[in-house]
Simulated scan of single mutants.
Amino acid sequence: MNDIFDPKRDYVLENDSALLRPVTAADFELLKNFGVNEPELWKFTLQNAGSEEGMRQYLETALERREKGTSYPFIVFDKIKNEYAGSTRLYDIDSASKNLSLGYTWYGKNFQGTGLNKHCKYLLFEFIFEQLEFERVEFRLDSENERSMQAIKSIGCTFEGVLRNNGYRIDGTRRNSAVLSILKNEWLESKKELLSNKINKV
């Protein structure tokens, strides 16, 4: 389709299991309980949303970065459970080079391991590679976050290496960041079918 990415436009991604729409300030009311009641969600994150005020600041930062055109945050709705489940974000968006990063992804514990993440990634990859025609999606995560590492590998991404001591955890300690990626040609040639088969089994 070769759509030109417009951070001011409201993109909605949807299938039978998941719906992703742009985050708004009003979504604080839908997400604040995750901040208050599930502090373990933020163990490996770069921004601590593990309180009511933390979630408010988390969303404010996401919206500020969307306004600048560098990020595009989504809220995730689980259509099977009929509940809001979490959030994910496109960031470091480089339209000239057709590269972006995908992260700031979290789901409440009741939505983990249900297949929701795979549905969301399918929708996102389809959007990024087929509608926007970007060439590369990168993931960066704490190298100690084994759960997320396996989840990203399971959707067809390739481990590239580790950026040593390149950022701070929310507790102030330094972290190593693992880097994984998936390319447009990989998606079109094989990874789309791989992920489609996975979500159809869920």
Rank of each mutant, 00 (worst) to 15 (best):
E29M: 10
F34R: 03
G69C: 08
R66N: 06
L63F: 08
D27H: 11
E40H: 11
L63E: 11
L30K: 15
E64F: 05
W42Y: 09
R65D: 11
T61Y: 12
A62E: 09
E52S: 15
E52F: 08
S51R: 07
E52Y: 07
A49H: 04
G54P: 05
T24L: 10
G35A: 07
P39F: 07
K32Y: 12
F34V: 05
G69K: 10
G50K: 03
Q47N: 09
G50A: 13
G54I: 06
V36S: 07
R56Q: 11
N37C: 07
P22W: 03
G69W: 01
M55D: 08
T45N: 12
R66L: 05
K68P: 00
R66Y: 05
V36N: 00
K32Q: 13
E67I: 01
G50T: 02
F28V: 02
L31C: 09
T45W: 10
A62M: 14
E40R: 09
S51Q: 08
N33K: 12
N33W: 11
E38P: 10
A49N: 04
A26I: 01
K32I: 05
K68Q: 13
E64G: 02
K43T: 15
F34L: 12
T45R: 13
L20D: 01
Q47K: 08
L46E: 04
V23G: 00
G69L: 09
L59M: 14
S51K: 07
W42K: 01
D27V: 03
Y58K: 09
G50R: 03
F44N: 07
K43C: 12
R66D: 02
S17E: 03
E64W: 00
W42G: 08
G54F: 07
K43R: 15
L20K: 00
P39R: 13
L46T: 10
K43Y: 12
